[in-house]
Simulated scan of single mutants.
Amino acid sequence: MTLALLFPGQGSQSVGMGVALADAFASAREVYAEIDDALGQKLALLMREGPEDQLTLTENAQPALMAVSLAAVRVLKVEFDIDVSRAALVAGHSLGEYSALCAAGALSLADTARLLKLRGQAMQRAVPVGAGAMASLIGPKTDLALAEAAAKAGSEVGVCVVANDNNAGNIVISGDKAAVDRAIEKAKELGARAIPLNVSAPFHCPLMQRAADEMAEALSGATLLGPRVPVVANVTARPETDPETIRRLLVEQVTGRVRWRESMEWMAGEGGITRFAEIGSGKVLTGMAKRIAPDAESVALNTPEDLEAFAKSFN
């Protein structure tokens, strides 16, 4: 089977995530300790005990989700001798792209943690709380054309764009609150359900330009190597290996669309992937994979038992 590793994005966090890995494996605890040292905070304790409102803060959720993913990657390598290089491709949803790059050796663990902490803070600073909004358009009639039409209606009163093209039936719009409200009305007229999202900022839209500028400065000083496994970028939905191209695309990703459906379709088609494994917290990407690429195998690797079973499948 040709394998791709997937790394989850914001929304997959929950109090207690990654605790079973830490309790079972010293290698996972070492990852959490390295990240705590890099950030100068007790992130592992926050993941274990909460409170949930602090873990959900963007500046904490982003490095925390990365921490669980990289702990699982470390466990696979140290305990089961399964290296990331066994995969043909890696990809991550939004912040998960940083996890993918770290797993593939393009970024160090400490740098990844610091970049994600800054990314979360910068995204929060970019727009005053309450000024922006996001909404999920869902249902069998929801496709990219419908979402684009809804966003166009919203853009008559402010910034409104498609932020996440997750899969058919699940597309997220983002922008000024008034514009998103107008887009929600239009989406309902067109036959979609629209659910406002409980987010602290309008991610992946032009309102995030200030955050993109901050990330451009931070990334310019970060050491970024060629990944050992090609990384399918959110912005291009294609595999990338050139460090400078990756650096530029990470900046563009802050304001740009997460082209996840296209990424998955490419991997399952031209990429030849027949097995997707989501590494980290939750099963969001696994669900999407089953809808986008139903002929491929899709598994979520959350627990020690998941990792052990996955490792045995290679024998």
Rank of each mutant, 00 (worst) to 15 (best):
P140R: 12
V161R: 01
Q121A: 14
A72M: 12
Q124F: 05
G96N: 04
V299W: 07
R86W: 12
P230K: 04
R210P: 13
M123G: 05
V231T: 11
S136A: 15
G120P: 07
G175E: 01
G96S: 11
V231R: 06
M123Q: 07
F276Q: 06
N198W: 08
H93A: 03
A145S: 12
Q54F: 11
E278N: 02
A293G: 01
Q62E: 09
G120C: 10
C205N: 04
Q121C: 08
G139Q: 01
A300G: 13
A194F: 00
Q41I: 15
L55A: 04
E240A: 14
A311S: 03
E297R: 10
G269K: 04
I82F: 12
G272T: 11
P202K: 00
G92D: 06
N302K: 12
E97Y: 02
R238S: 05
V15K: 07
E185R: 10
V231A: 08
D176R: 01
L307T: 07
A201C: 05
A212W: 03
P294H: 09
W266V: 05
D111Q: 11
A277L: 03
V159Q: 06
I138Y: 10
N170E: 15
E217V: 15
G272W: 12
A153N: 08
E305K: 15
V172K: 03
A168G: 07
L39D: 14
D165N: 14
I195Y: 02
F25I: 02
S14G: 05
A289G: 02
A163I: 01
